[in-house]
């Protein structure tokens, strides 16, 4: 009895420092884990910080702008000439330029994108699909400045053969190029939406004797509508924010027109034009690009939110 008690005491005596050391080690390890987790958390917070910084910078400089320019002038004046002596600050011409180029792009992207996506999702063999998707990805990876070159020196001259009095700078050429540029995005999002339609619906349709095309148009497309719309909305958001194509090929003069055959500056082209010059920090011209940028950010934000909400919806249906 006494002997075994002594043995237990001996074991405790020997193991005590070991246990103490293990406890210390576990504590430092725990602390290390916590430090690492905090570091990772800080890295994740960078995107929040970036978002806050974008909003703050845009709002702050825009506030300076709106101290000098009334909101009514900004929204209703039909001239945008902040750099002239006779300065006017009406955003409408830039907005019109942005909308016309985006609309032309959309006119290309809606039919071509939808048809391509239907073909890829419902008709193409999986081998063709595996081949086409990376190529589309490459199409989306070409730098925008190269597309600008393409719009100015390839597409516009080609269009001038059709309409000889088309000016060298116009909104039609860049609009078409923007449409082609957003195709990869539109096609891959649309295809995702149609893939998400359950097979059962298609099989039901085939069972009633419908052809593939009828099934695609009358069953799959209606079932995937919100996803398809979302794809195009996100495409528009990309088109609205597109910069280099329009800055290179659509001209730099604000021009309130709905005619795509005319040259006109967009919001983004104006920002580039001002940035290329040498405007003093804090001047009204400098602040005007932030006000214009704020309008642009608000537009793309709205489109993005709309797109994401619609995308979520098509996911939840089934």
């Amino acid at each position: 009895m006494n002997k075994s008690l002594a043995a237990v005491r001996e074991v405790i005596r020997i193991s005590e420092p070991v246990i103490a050391e293990a406890t210390v080690r576990r504590r430092t390890q725990h602390r290390r884990e916590q430090v690492i987790e905090s570091g990772l958390f800080l890295a994740a917070m960078m995107s929040v910080a970036a978002t806050v910084a974008i909003l703050t910078v845009l709002l702050w400089e825009s506030l300076g702008f709106f101290q000098a320019v009334s909101l009514t002038d900004f929204l209703t004046d039909t001239l945008w000439t902040p750099l002239f002596d006779d300065a006017h600050y009406g955003i409408l011409p830039l907005l019109a330029g942005t909308m016309v180029t985006s609309l032309v792009g959309l006119l290309v992207a809606i039919p071509v994108g939808t048809v391509s996506a239907i073909y890829l999702s419902e008709f193409a063999s999986s081998r063709l699909r595996e081949l086409i998707k990376p190529v589309l990805e490459l199409l989306g990876a070409v730098p925008t400045v190269v597309y600008g070159y393409f719009a100015l020196l390839v597409v516009t001259p080609a269009l001038q053969k059709l309409w000889p009095d088309l000016p060298g700078f116009n909104m039609l050429g860049p609009g078409i190029v923007i449409g082609i540029m957003i195709l990869p995005l539109v096609i891959s999002l649309s295809e995702d939406a149609m893939r998400a339609v359950p097979m059962v619906l298609r099989e039901g349709s085939y069972a009633t004797g419908a052809t593939r095309l009828q099934t695609a148009w009358r069953v799959v497309v209606p079932a995937a509508t919100s996803g398809l719309v979302a794809a195009h909305v996100l495409g528009v958001s990309r088109a609205v924010g597109e910069t280099m194509v329009v800055a290179i090929a659509a001209g730099q003069n604000p021009n309130l027109t709905w005619n795509p055959m005319e040259p006109a500056a967009t919001i983004t082209a104006y920002i580039v034009q001002v940035a290329l010059g040498d405007l003093p920090h804090g001047s009204i011209g400098y602040q005007s690009i932030f006000a214009a940028g704020f309008v642009l950010a608000a537009m793309t934000f709205t489109f993005n939110m709309l797109g994401h909400v619609m995308r979520k919806r098509f996911r939840e249906v089934y």
């Binding site: 996100l234 990309r238 924010g241 597109e242 580039v272 940028g293 642009l296």
Partner: peptide
Amino acid sequence: NLAGVPSIIFGLL
């Protein structure tokens, strides 16, 4: 949201 912000807005930031 950041993924959808036009690149020129990053330039303004």
